[in-house]
């Protein structure tokens, strides 16, 4: 099992000064290589959930065991390390580093993770069809190409888990299908589990395993 979540809670303090639960998940898990699509509407806490899994946000309580490391209560340095080496993250807005080339975007991720290996980076960029764009800056790429860079960057450290937050939100339907196929294929080839959250029914329908966030998040169900 690559991910085990137990009694995970996270609240935000509202304008009234009272805590408002956003995530309250009694149990959730992912096996190695498992692909799951999580359905969630806007404001359902799906991004907060993914940030908790990635160690970007600190949970109020509960447990997140990712690749054998407990993240809740772990130091920030530990969470940084787990994020760099065991996790890939594809953002809706891709979050590519402007001012850096395509190859440098992967280089930085690798330097934080398994270490810089230009051959591996080039191989991955070749796999996503960007072998001839490695020196381009993100601004010089189409939206679809940027999304492929984001996928390559998420997988470059050979993570056990890839989190994808509305990864096709900025793509047209045709490119959306292509991007999903690519992401799933690369994850499958590399044995990485994939947890994708989306509110797009077409995207969700393409996954064999689907869950509604509201079904596992008691806070989301309450809202």
């Amino acid at each position: 099992m690559v991910l085990q979540v137990t009694d995970l809670c996270r609240s935000y303090r509202g304008p009234d000064g009272r805590p408002h639960p956003v995530v309250d998940i009694p149990a959730f898990s992912l096996d190695s290589g498992q692909h799951i699509a999580l359905a969630g509407h806007s404001g359902s806490g799906k991004t907060t959930f993914l940030h908790l899994l990635a160690g970007i946000l600190r949970a109020d309580s509960g447990s997140i065991v990712l690749a054998g490391t407990e993240l809740v209560g772990a130091s920030e340095a530990t969470r940084d390390r787990v994020r760099a080496t065991h996790l890939g993250y594809v953002f809706q807005t891709f979050n590519l580093l402007q001012g850096f080339s395509v190859l440098e975007n992967l280089e930085l991720a690798m330097r934080f993770g398994i270490g810089w290996d230009p051959e591996r980076a080039r191989e991955l960029l070749d796999a996503v069809g960007l072998a001839d764009r490695i020196q381009h800056s993100p601004a010089q790429l189409s939206v679809g190409q940027q999304q492929r860079v984001a996928v390559a960057r998420a997988l470059v450290n050979q993570p056990e888990l890839v989190l994808a937050d509305e990864p096709t939100g900025n793509l047209d339907p045709e490119r959306s299908t292509e991007a999903l196929d690519l992401m799933r294929r690369l994850c499958r080839d590399r044995g990485a589990a994939l947890l994708l959250v989306s509110h797009d029914q077409q995207v969700l329908a393409s996954f064999e395993q689907r869950l509604a966030l509201a079904d596992i998040n008691r806070a989301g169900a309450a809202s």
């Binding site: 990635a54 970007i56 953002f91």
Partner: peptide, 16 residues
Amino acid sequence: RRQFAILRALGARRMT
């Protein structure tokens, strides 16, 4: 700030 946040999301430490 966004660049720093992205770097942190990629695994960079605060000290980095």
